[in-house]
């Protein structure tokens, strides 16, 4: 058998892990959208040359440990309060890039007040909002975004609006607020969507640095563990069920 050696030449390199992604092994489940979104955030910060200027605010939820994976300064906020924490950081360091990274439980349930009011004040921050229609970390309970009929640990017979109310589109609500300059809904389940999402993230970061107001990038995302499906099936389920209710695209852009 012929022996051969693989030689990696820098000029041949077409893809790599972003420098800002740490070596730490991610705790996210295989198939989870968080990993891809983390990568995009790291790439945007890196490409904009903001690594020394960026402060991230991590939530309570699966992404509480976001600070272990992106090599910037982080503050971990109490459940739902990320937007309030980010408000102070940005007001006290106006030249810094400040973003929050929050799930749907954190942003759209317990943190609704803080999120809406940060939007309304027009804080120059970016809110990255991961909507997978479920509480992942605590074991798959209903989120405010859970679709009607969807089974979760606390809606074992499916979400019934008479019992549990309706799923809601907080991003659409926020679009009505004057302090908000950019709201978009993205996903990372196909390479095309990943590229679009990265552009949207970059635009949001640029808005914040230009002082245009608050930008929110919602990611419709999968939680295959919570949904109890394989990663591939999750992507399909998301396309068939989530995207009709949470359609992708810009909601507000001024």
């Amino acid at each position: 058998m012929a022996e051969f050696e693989v030689e990696i030449k820098p000029e041949n390199l077409v893809y790599g892990t972003p420098k800002l992604i740490t070596d730490r092994i991610m705790h996210y489940c295989p198939g989870c959208s968080h990993g891809t979104i983390h990568k995009l955030v790291a790439e945007v910060i890196e490409e904009m040359g903001l690594a020394e200027k960026t402060i991230g605010v991590s939530p309570v939820g699966c992404s509480v440990f976001a600070y272990n994976y992106i090599d910037i300064d982080w503050v971990q906020a109490a459940h739902g309060r990320a937007a309030a924490v980010a408000t102070a950081v940005k007001r006290l360091y106006p030249e810094k890039m400040v973003f929050t990274y929050q799930g749907d439980g954190d942003l759209a349930a317990i943190g609704t007040g803080e999120s809406i009011h940060a939007c309304n004040r027009g804080e120059n921050i970016v809110v990255i909002y991961i909507n997978n229609a479920i509480y992942g970390m605590t074991g798959g309970q209903m989120a405010p975004t859970t679709l009607l009929g969807m089974k979760t640990a606390t809606t074992p017979y499916g979400r019934d609006p008479k019992l549990h109310g309706y799923p809601y589109k907080i991003a659409d609500m926020m679009a009505h607020l004057d302090g908000v300059c950019y709201i978009t809904r993205q996903s990372v389940h196909t390479p095309v969507n990943v590229r679009k999402a990265k552009k949207a993230l970059r635009k949001a970061f640029e808005n914040a640095m230009a002082g245009k107001g608050l930008s929110l990038v919602e990611f419709v995302a999968t939680c295959n563990s919570g949904w109890k499906q394989s990663p591939v099936a999750s992507n399909r389920w998301m396309e068939e069920n989530m995207l009709p209710f949470y359609p992708l695209g810009d909601i507000k852009d001024i």
Binding site: A84, L92, E114, H117
Partner: peptide, 18 residues
Amino acid sequence: QAESEVASINMVYGGAAC
């Protein structure tokens, strides 16, 4: 002027972190 005491103390948390 925050929207609640909950928000104001978390703003304090963010500021103190800096």
